[in-house]
Design a protein around this nucleic acid. Structure first.
Length: 113
DNA sequence: ACCATGACGTTTC
DNA sequence: CGAAACGCCATGG
C-alpha cells in the first residue's frame, strides 16, 4: 500500500475545506481530527498557507480556530478581507469573533469520508 | 542534524 | 479569566 505523504494530507485538507457549506465555518482542529491527525491542527493552518499558491480557490476564510476567532486574517490580502468574505456569506462577526459560533460550526462527518 | 517558527489546542497557574 | 507552558508536526535556515 502506498504510504501517506504530506501532499495527501494537504489534498485531504483542501477537500474538506471545499466541502464546508456556505455560511458555515469549521476549525483547524476539527479538520485535523477528521483526517485522523488529531494533534496536527497546525498542519491544517500550514496547508491553508500553502493553498495560496494553488490554482484551486480554497475558502480558507471558512476555517478558524476553535474559539471562532479569525486568527488567520492577517494572511489575507487586506486587513479585513477574511471578515468581509464571511459576512458576505451570512456569518456575523464582532471583533474578528464569530457570533453564534456553535450554530455556525460545521463538523465534517466521518460518513462523508 | 539541530534549532526556530507557526492560519492550533489543551492544560496549568 | 488571562497568560504561559507544553504537545503536536511540517517547513525552512
Amino acid at each position: 500500500m502506498p504510504k501517506k505523504t504530506t501532499l495527501d494530507f494537504y489534498r485531504a485538507v483542501y477537500d474538506v475545506v471545499l466541502l464546508i457549506p456556505k455560511g458555515r465555518v469549521s476549525t483547524y482542529g476539527a479538520i485535523a481530527e477528521f483526517l485522523s491527525a488529531k494533534g496536527a491542527a497546525r498542519m491544517v493552518g500550514y496547508a491553508m498557507n500553502a493553498s495560496h499558491n494553488l490554482e484551486f480557490k480554497i475558502p480558507a476564510h471558512r476555517v478558524v480556530n476553535r474559539n471562532g476567532l479569525l486568527t488567520g486574517k492577517h494572511h489575507f490580502e487586506g486587513s479585513n478581507t477574511m471578515q468581509n468574505l464571511l459576512e458576505e456569506e451570512g456569518v456575523t462577526l464582532v471583533e474578528n469573533q464569530i457570533q453564534n459560533f456553535k450554530q455556525a460550526f460545521w463538523h465534517p462527518n466521518k460518513e462523508l469520508k
